[in-house]
């Protein structure tokens, strides 16, 4: 079984896919920074940010539903911001009796919570768009352009290349265990052995996964040596940025800057 379902990249022929990966990475980061800097309660800005990301989703031909569905996966963390509704003082919106205490939801608290949730929601969508429209080797190129050290980029590249092999390996280990009834994920089924025994089995699996990774990395090193590796990683020079890509970069950056300036002036 192959685990390409993990790779979020979706091949399309949209302008977003054709955009230079360096521009895409910088714009994604700028968009997320803009969302993070947007003041709490600046609803018009949030609406405009959402309109921007929605437009890009439509242009990218990835399917708005696909992006929104994936974005929902990041939602559980919103729980961390939930207390803000009740702890920030302000006009009481409604109160919830919890045992002997009464939780008072305040309007500023609710505003804070909604702002955090919206920020995180549009940011996740930007991240999904980047990952779904850019093949990983292009992202490596963008990382190099952002001056990330070459050794780190090399480790990233090697990791990506063997990620699917090792995830396959982990899934095989898990299938072998499931076949021997060491795992019962469904409620109602009793898992075999004691808790410590199950943990030891999982630990043994992790250990053998690492051992296989060690041995595989030895073989990879031999293969690299045989092909002339001398400890130095060489890569092609970065291609020049095409004019309309640079133009797109400047335009979107100025739009985001304009939004931020508005946010700071009026909120």
């Amino acid at each position: 079984m192959h685990i390409h379902f993990l790779d979020p990249y979706r091949e399309r022929s949209s302008p977003i896919h054709a955009l230079d990966p360096r521009v895409k990475l910088v714009l994604t980061l700028a968009f997320i920074l803009t969302a993070a800097l947007t003041p709490v309660g600046a609803w018009p800005l949030f609406i405009l940010l959402f309109a921007i990301i929605l437009s890009v989703e439509i242009i990218s031909e990835l399917g708005v539903l696909y992006v929104l569905k994936r974005a929902a996966l990041a939602l559980p963390f919103v729980l961390a911001a939930l207390p803000a509704i009740f702890t920030i003082p302000g006009d009481t919106l409604f109160s919830l009796p919890v045992g002997p205490w009464v939780l008072r939801a305040s309007i500023p608290g609710l505003e804070r919570f909604a702002s955090i949730a919206l920020k995180s929601w549009v940011s996740v969508q930007a991240g999904i768009l980047l990952a779904a429209s850019t093949p990983f080797p292009d992202l490596l190129l963008a990382m190099r352009a952002l001056r990330i050290p070459r050794l780190l980029v090399t480790i990233f590249g090697l990791m990506w290349r063997y990620l699917f092999v090792l995830v396959d390996e982990a899934l095989r280990l898990m299938r072998a265990r499931a076949a021997r009834s060491g795992l019962a994920d469904q409620p109602g089924l009793k898992p075999g052995g004691s808790l410590v025994w199950r943990a030891r089995v999982a630990g043994g699996m992790a250990g053998s996964l690492f051992l296989r990774a060690f041995e595989r990395s030895d073989r990879i090193y031999m293969a690299m040596l045989a092909r002339g590796y001398d400890g130095e990683v060489r890569s092609m020079p970065l291609p020049a940025l095409r004019p309309w890509h640079a133009l797109a970069l400047v335009i979107v950056l100025s739009v985001l800057l304009l939004l931020l300036v508005m946010g700071f002036l009026f909120w």
Binding site: L158, L166, A170, I220
Partner: peptide, 19 residues
């Protein structure tokens, strides 16, 4: 260098192992 890359992949895959 290859060892760190492959081990990073192994840790990523190892995070799927559960009990």
């Amino acid at each position: 260098v290859p060892m760190m890359g492959v081990l990073a992949a192994a840790i990523f895959a190892g995070q799927m192992l559960n009990f």
